[in-house]
Design a protein around this nucleic acid. Structure first.
Lengths: 355, 355
DNA sequence: TTGTACGCGTTATCAA
DNA sequence: TTGATAACGCGTACAA
């Protein structure tokens, strides 16, 4: 005959049991008020026997503070985001904040929904990575105007006064493209991401900058619009392979690792070899990069570090720091493996040791 | 001169602006009460111009319901959990619940902490996967006694009256071991997990059952205690390879995929081949299984499905269903790849098509 | 159909 | 050092 409705012990219960007022109980638990030594012991004893835990919902209402941070991600299981979330959690946990995790599923509608919900739930701040098909209207602006601290991570929107923590996409794309150029490639294609995403535009710009900086022509026929996934990379590569042999690229800079993987498969399925016939490089260094049929040369995105940085920045803003830089970047690293054809076999012959 | 403290629009503000009482505003937004047609329009108009959103903290306090579910996971970025969380999110989102994500980092202390916090935050229910070094005291019992619905997923604790959703570890381990036996292996080792985990015990039991069921001896020297990670698998395999050649196993059943990966590397680093000299099979089918130096034969754990099932079960309990089965299992699948030496090369020569 | 009074559990404020 | 009271923003119960 269990009662269904949970009956929780309140401060008044503890107060009654220990012969003081509810206010004193509150003081004991909040810690920041003078309480008599004996009183304190009495209260704590009563609280222990009754199993009292302060009701954080009531606290939140009274204090207008929830100690909770909303995290909005476009994907949950793409390896980048779990890592970033781990970084976020690491920092927020230490600072005494908890995470409300929302999933936008790459859609503008669910992202908007998530923000409104987080507003209703009165989170103290929001960390957000923009959905791929974020629409034209910006629900972010409302958040900023309400005065809710907002920090974008990885995928940002500029011009609305929110801080952005990301890698330097343009510079990183320039570096990896220049790496190919430095090893003698000249006909280099780019599997570009959706134009709606700032990272797509930045990476494309870096790709162009590298070509132009090396005095190479930038042939628009070699820039193919793709999505962010394997299938899209596969399809885009197929279309590049359909070009006349003389126009066919000898190397490909993919928008990210999954797209690079798709491209790699397309090359192999067409009977060509990576990197001998077509070199492929990615962007992300997700878990699988090292284990692909041909280990992938890519840009390592420090997802964990990025999450930490974004979280630290948000907490600083919540705690009233005068908003610092609007743009923070965390460093990336070029990871050279076999797929770019720039390494001697000996370097990568034996499988990596466990890490 | 922005004010730092967020000033939110309340129901009273809307009431004043539309010439009704706060109660009527509440009725309009909760939907379940008779409200005059004209009144409704007035209220909605005022709410829109003012940008009113109900304060869910206040709602929660009044209703003793937060529409929030706590999710406690021991690891965030191990590929299994992101997938499971995605399944959980899918179901809870549709049912109008939100997720408070807590990370126990495989420690009993942080797990306990997480549960107390979730209690304080008055979540409507909790989904939990047990930490590896969960101590002897069970903080779960308190949760159950308080009447907070609790459902374990993947890693469970029995005997405290909470439902458990998991795969049938014992049966799955039996199946994959039997698969090896069916292909002629007789000296089969097991890289076992920590005894403290129920899944470790179950998988070990399945391994034994397969051997005994086939009339094979179960040699304790071939059961090596390992952890759940690459390094542990590597070390355990090294110790097996140090056995006299006649006692050395021809096949290894690892507790999970990371351990199998470590074992595979150990075999290769010792100059032997997988599967020709030592066959290796795993358990999990994480993302990397397909892409390992030798593609890994393993048990596919439907993490997504498991998350969905656990979430659905929890919501049913929250909504007052008489607690159903205490134990639910979701099906697994044997995924045969090259590492077990049971497949002809032709089957796996070309890389998989994109999925 | 609408409004008033009160409670949810806590904290800030002021008085003792 | 401690207690009484009001307030946080909303919903239930009842009255109008």
């Amino acid at each position: 005959m269990k009662r269904r409705t949970v009956r929780h012990v309140t401060a008044s219960d503890v107060a009654r049991a220990s012969g003081v007022s509810a206010m004193t109980v509150s003081r004991v638990f909040s810690g920041r008020a003078p309480v008599g030594d004996r009183t304190q012991r009495k209260v704590l004893a009563a609280a222990r026997t009754l199993g009292y835990r302060p009701n954080q919902i009531a606290q939140s209402l009274a204090l207008s503070r929830t100690q909770t941070i909303g995290v909005v991600v476009p994907e949950i299981s793409h390896s980048f985001f779990p890592e970033a979330i781990r970084g976020i959690e690491e920092v927020t946990y230490r600072a005494g904040y908890h995470l409300l995790l929302m999933h936008s599923a790459e859609t503008a509608e669910r992202e908007r929904d998530a923000l409104l919900t987080l507003e209703s739930k009165r989170v103290d701040g929001i960390l957000l990575s923009v959905a791929q098909d974020a629409g034209p209207t910006h629900p972010y602006r409302r958040v900023v105007q309400l005065g809710i601290p907002l920090v974008f991570f990885d995928r940002c929107v500029s011009g609305i006064g929110a801080t952005c923590v990301s890698i330097d996409d343009e510079e990183s794309a320039r570096v990896i493209t220049a790496h190919l150029i430095g090893h003698g490639y000249t006909r280099i294609a780019h599997l570009a991401g959706p134009r709606s995403l700032a990272i797509s535009r930045a990476r494309r710009a870096g790709y162009r900058a590298a070509l132009l900086g090396a005095g190479l022509a930038c042939d628009d026929a070699l820039i193919v619009s793709a999505g962010l996934h394997e299938q899209a990379g596969y399809a885009a590569m197929v279309s590049l392979l359909a070009l006349p042999v003389s126009k066919r690229p000898r190397a490909v800079v993919a928008i990210n690792d999954p797209a690079a993987y798709g491209a790699m498969l397309a090359v192999m399925h067409s009977g060509l070899r990576v990197p001998e016939d077509v070199a492929v490089v990615g962007f992300s260094d997700d878990l699988r990069a090292e284990l692909m049929p041909v280990p992938l040369t890519t840009i390592r995105q420090p997802a964990y570090e990025l999450g930490r940085t974004a979280a630290a920045e948000l907490i600083a803003q919540i705690q009233g720091a005068t908003a610092g830089k609007k743009q923070k970047t965390v460093g990336t690293e070029l990871v050279t493996r076999r797929s770019c054809g720039c390494v001697t076999p000996a370097d990568t012959e034996s499988p990596a040791r466990p890490r």
